[in-house]
Design a protein around this nucleic acid. Structure first.
Ligand SMILES: [Mn+2]
Ligand SMILES: [Mn+2]
Length: 542
DNA sequence: GTGGGATTGG
DNA sequence: TTCACACTATCCT
DNA sequence: GATAGTGTGTCTCCAATCCCACTA
């Protein structure tokens, strides 16, 4: 439901002041004296100036055209600009390179400024020409365009303003619009208690390293594969910081480094980076990379030392075992593989997705169905464990706009909630029927942001259909498996859930050229072991 | 003129 | 701008 | 069959507007 009452004219300033005050109360010791003085000065600015600064902060930036500042709630724009500049919050004569300039100017303005640019070309081609001519030269607007009808403003002290936001949202991608989205009723968040003393960042080092990790991740994503200097820089920073900070946070970067090295067939660097990745697929990649290096005995030893954390990892290792044995001239023991049961449907290509085609085919046979993939089991899990997921655990909730606890996928997630989980599960076990309580939760939590239950994707009727047909202990087993590794087992569930009279069926649809994925096979094998009814519908073309 | 992506503000 | 899934290409037996 | 790589729809709001490219 959308809120009716209009927001105050300066709602965005109010929100930002709330943010700054919250951060300065929780985290003041993370800032040095100069920064603390700036924060106080920020709060002491007059409202007009605060408004303008926040407006600039929410624009794409870092440069904003003065002729695109149209804010009636700012009473005296010129005075605000002057005050912000006098206090060092903005610059009115920023230097910028020609690419940044060309993004600020419209095509017609570029044409007027550089009449030689060929009219027929697109703006992107003009930008390329301009860059070739001027490269990275930095100049103020008045030099690029002496007769410019506007000025440019740019934020100064962006680092401080950015850190305030990162601290508030505990995220490298802070989003000030969250406030207004909630105020307008576009999103609702679960209400959980917040504890300012449990801080997401214990000290400045942790904050800086968090931000820096984001910078490095971005640099790696942008760098071409041949650009090994970036890899070396990332690696050096990871090694330098690994003592100060818990290592789990760096796993993603190590994995990215390893994969880039592997793509370059630089197996030694790949190996040393994969070794830093303790979670899947790290250990398995170490084994494969040892194979690439021809060190098959080491590979075999490493493989035997791994305790698989998931059955996907176990399967991947078993598959690779054959290669190792072949390389070492050992006999390869036949491994028993799971074959999913399937049936074939020959349907003409009518432009529709095969999943929809199979749904139609099922309907003709009297089956109702829902194309839900992972959403159905996830929804049941989320609703059943809601109070555990949103439990008041130290460090789990840091601000009011979270869709779930910060440690959702942490290995200690359940350990930190063991008693609550036991209590929650005992209550479900004690209930004769789950439908009543689940429906109550379904209605109460529909529309509340969370990572498991999305009412739009799973109508209550589908959950009810499942509850009415699947034995409770079987569903329980599925939920326990999901709980055993939330990140891993939340994917791979079949496309369709179908039901007719007292029967139900999970159906994975495979079109021509499509095959079961690892995670899908793993769930189907578990279905088979638990006597969950399933099928693979293989669609062929006539 | 149309359509689409980016930007903006609530 | 990520994640899960489909789809394609290649090499191999 | 195994593996790697690429493409796609959907993400965490919605309406209004701007700018550009394309077409007539
Ligand atoms: Mn699917
Ligand atoms: Mn499928």
């Amino acid at each position: 439901m959308v809120e009716q009452t209009p927001l105050p004219a300066r709602y965005y300033r109010d929100n930002f002041v709330v943010l700054v005050q919250s951060v300065s109360q929780r985290y003041l010791d993370l800032f040095d004296d100069t920064e603390q003085a700036h924060i106080q000065a920020l709060l002491a600015l007059d409202q007009d100036a605060q408004c303008l600064l926040v407006r600039l902060l929410t624009r794409v930036g870092p440069w904003v055209r003065s002729d695109q500042l149209n804010y009636p709630e700012i009473l005296d724009l010129e005075l605000s600009i002057a005050r912000l500049e006098a206090q060092g919050w903005i610059s009115t004569r920023p230097e910028l390179d020609v690419l940044s300039l060309s993004r600020l100017l419209r095509k017609a303005e570029l044409q007027a400024l550089w009449p030689a640019l060929p009219k027929a070309e697109r703006k992107a081609q003009w930008q390329q020409r301009l860059y070739e001519q001027y490269t990275d030269a930095q100049r103020p607007l008045q030099q690029w365009w002496p007769k410019a009808p506007m000025r440019l403003l740019s934020i100064e002290r962006y680092a401080l303003l950015h850190r305030l936001q990162v601290l508030f949202f505990a995220s490298n991608r802070p989003d000030l619009s969250q406030f207004v989205i909630v105020a307008l009723g576009h999103q609702r968040f679960e209400s959980y208690p917040l504890h300012p003393q449990y801080r997401a960042y214990a000290n400045r080092h942790e904050l800086e390293w968090h931000i820096q990790r984001g910078v490095l991740r971005e640099a790696l994503a942008q760098a071409s594969l041949e650009d090994t200097a970036t890899d070396a820089e990332v690696r050096a920073q990871l090694l330098a910081r690994q003592r100060e900070v818990p290592s789990q946070a760096s796993t993603g970067l190590w994995l990215a480094l390893a994969e880039r090295a592997a793509k370059r067939q630089d197996w030694r660097r790949a190996l040393s980076a994969y070794r830093r990745v303790a979670t899947p697929p790290g250990p398995e990649r170490v084994v494969r990379t040892l194979g690439r290096l021809g060190r098959w005995r080491f590979a075999e030893r490493a493989m035997n030392a791994i305790i698989p954390q998931t059955d996907t990892e176990r399967n991947a290792l078993e598959r690779f075992r054959a290669s190792i044995h072949k390389a070492l001239d050992k006999p390869t023991p036949k491994r028993s593989r799971f074959w999913a049961q399937s049936f074939t449907l020959c349907l003409p290509d009518d432009g529709e997705r095969v999943e929809r085609q199979v749904q139609r085919h099922l309907r003709n046979a009297g089956w109702q169905s829902l194309w839900c993939e992972n959403a159905l089991l996830s929804a049941i899990f989320g609703l059943m464990y809601w109070e555990v997921i949103f439990a008041d655990v130290p460090y789990a909730f840091d601000h009011a706009f979270q869709r779930g606890p910060r440690d959702q996928y942490h290995p200690q997630f359940w350990a930190r909630r063991a008693a609550l989980r036991a209590q929650c599960e005992a209550q479900w076990q004690a209930r004769a029927s789950w439908a009543c309580e689940l429906q109550r939760r379904y209605e109460a939590k529909a529309g509340v942001q969370n990572r498991w239950f999305h009412a739009e994707r799973v109508p209550w009727s589908a959950i009810a259909a499942l509850l009415a047909r699947m034995d409770k202990p079987v569903l329980w087993a599925l939920l326990q498996r999901l709980a055993s590794d939330l990140r891993h087992y939340r994917s791979g569930l079949p496309d369709l859930f179908a039901w007719r009279e007292q029967q139900y069926r999970f159906i994975e649809v495979k079109g021509p050229g499509d095959r079961l994925q690892e995670s899908q096979t793993a769930w189907l094998a578990y279905f088979a072991a638990q006597d969950v009814h399933y099928d693979v519908a293989i669609v062929t073309r006539p």
